[in-house]
């Protein structure tokens, strides 16, 4: 316990010194407060954001909720489509080979480059954002599910075959569980993509959501609000990703080092 405290001391001290220098730099005129809003101003900005809101009436929590809901809708839809599809494609080698280059290309298409096209399809509303998140998450998830199913340790399959398992039964009781760590890894990667896409998508044609908040704040010279928004985005991403890790650990207690399942 005390050792942990001692270990945390140098970074904490460094961090505090950095913030103090920053604050002092602004006070004594070395740094422009607009470019480097001091901690005191960020704190006041946070109070304003969580009470009155920015723009007035829309608190930081409501921005955050909007963003989270958008991500979850697109992410959820992507997972709901990609997991079953990937499980099927991965089980059929011929279909996998037919679709492989197509999937690689679709994954290479920069998700946000679709924005102008998707606006033509769905207008600049909610559906466009959810679609973009879904697109980005879908291909990442799909390729991971397929890889998970395809690259199951062949000795495990052989071992199961010695007990007479084949076909669907072999798939269900051996291939599927063996693919789970990779599927979970894909889910975590896809979530990262989702958060990346939403921030970009919200910067165009909307005033709600954290991406819109940080962009709007800039045009009103409220850089402290931009910084708060960034920190909240980081915090949400971090929390959800940690939640997924915990879920993974609870659901796959047998998989030792989860970071090692990356290929």
């Amino acid at each position: 316990m005390t050792r942990k405290l001692v270990q945390a001391l140098p970074p904490l001290a460094a961090f505090t010194v950095l913030l103090l220098l920053w604050e002092a730099g602004v006070r004594y005129g070395f740094l422009k407060p607009y470019q480097f809003p001091p901690v005191s101003r960020i704190a006041r900005g946070f109070v304003e954001l969580s009470t009155t809101g920015f723009p007035t009436g829309v608190s930081i929590w409501s921005h955050a909720l909007t963003t989270i809901l958008r991500v979850l809708q697109g992410y959820g839809a992507a997972l709901a489509l990609a997991i079953p599809l990937g499980l099927v494609i991965g089980a059929l080698p011929v279909v996998d080979k037919l679709t492989a280059p197509l999937i690689v290309f679709c994954r290479s298409v920069a998700t946000l480059s679709l924005l102008p096209l998707v606006i033509v399809w769905f207008g600049a509303g909610e559906l466009t954002k959810v679609f973009l998140i879904g697109y980005g998450c879908f291909w990442v998830m799909l390729s991971n599910v397929i890889a998970g199913v395809r690259y199951v340790d062949p000795t495990l399959v052989r071992a199961a075959r010695t007990f007479g398992l084949k076909g669907l039964e072999l798939y269900r009781s051996v291939v599927l569980p063996a693919a789970l760590p990779r599927i979970f890894a894909g889910a975590r990667m896809a979530l990262g993509v989702g958060f990346m896409v939403i921030v970009g998508a919200e910067m165009i044609g909307t005033i709600e959501g954290l991406g819109a908040l940080i962009m709007e704040a800039r045009t009103f010279y409220r850089s402290e609000i931009t910084i708060i928004g960034m920190l909240v985005i980081g915090l949400i991403g971090f929390t959800i990703s940690a939640g997924l890790m915990a879920l993974e650990r609870a659901m796959l207690p047998w998989a030792g080092n989860l970071d090692r399942v990356r290929r």
Binding site: P10, M196, M203, I214, R218, I227, M230, F238
Partner: peptide
């Protein structure tokens, strides 16, 4: 010991979220 916590603090922020601040700077 000093650099890592700072990096870990900033890492969860997606690069695109830096756009407004980048324009400010």
């Amino acid at each position: 010991a000093i650099a890592r916590p700072l990096i870990e603090l900033l890492r969860p922020i997606p690069p695109l979220a830096w756009i407004p601040l980048a324009i400010i700077w």
